[in-house]
Design a protein around this nucleic acid. Structure first.
Lengths: 149, 149
DNA sequence: TGTGAATACTAATTCAAC
DNA sequence: GTTGAATTAGTATTCACA
């Protein structure tokens, strides 16, 4: 079990369970036969940027990070820089072709980042099709995406 | 200086300064001639639901809360329960009539909560007009809003 | 109810080992 | 580069009191 896998598992655990303390995360991981200590979990939390949130009821809980626009932009830039093939538009459509396997991650980020502009977005393994709400929105979206290239 | 005032000040401080530890908040408050201890700041943080965020660079910082869906739902429920007049729909439109002065706050929350469904939302003092992306989305939105009543 | 002082608890880091 | 054990740093809570 590598660190990266554990990180993924931790994210899943946080979605399901109410983790209030790092020790609880340690236990939850142990139940899945992953032996780590509080020290490691503390580092994981830092790396994953998990946040400690005062719970609505009582106590505290660990929660997934809220990505800022800047962080999403950074991610998008990296992803697109690495996987870009072509970008095109027509009417209210924008298409982005990527290297195989990369469309999904990029589409997810674009979806979050451009909710305002997007009417719908869908992708297969290496293509993203975006449908914008208006032609102006298509223009904005296309120009913004060009910046990432 | 009452607690409520201090809370407001803390929120302002967090927006401006990079507060990494509760002790720093204590110091920042002392500089403004407000004498409190770490214990009090800890309670303030819990009450304000401030979160401890692993910083992008190094270390940690305290930050303003992120509202969860549940919290938005709670707020919406309260607001709508208190100010509801009528709810109606037609084609891709949904209208919500409220008591005078209440439309804006409710519209803002609906906008955040139903981004997926909404194409546009606008309000005056006591009316909200929602335009959904599709008829199915209108159906979903209308049914969800009915639950808040 | 709100607070500080002391304390208990939790989390982050250091340091050594791998 | 990653980890656990031990330690330190930081945070939450208890308890007494205004």
């Amino acid at each position: 079990m590598k660190k990266e896998e554990r990180h993924q598992l931790i994210i899943q655990l946080l979605e399901k369970e109410n983790i209030q303390k790092q020790e609880e995360l340690v236990k939850a991981l142990q139940e899945r036969d992953i032996a780590v200590t509080q020290a490691t979990v503390s580092r994981d939390i830092k790396e994953l940027k998990l946040i400690k949130v005062p719970a609505t009821g009582d106590g505290y809980r660990y929660s997934l990070p809220v990505e800022s626009d800047e962080e999403m932009n950074e991610k998008l830039t990296k992803l697109i820089k690495n996987a870009f093939v072509s970008l095109d538009h027509m009417d209210k459509f924008v298409t982005l072709k990527t290297l195989p396997g990369n469309a999904s991650a990029i589409a997810n980020l674009i979806d979050k980042r451009f909710t305002k502009e997007l009417f719908a977005i869908l992708n297969d393994d290496d293509n993203i099709l975006m449908i914008t709400k208006t032609t102006q929105a298509r223009e904005r979206l296309f120009q913004e995406l060009q910046k990432y290239i």
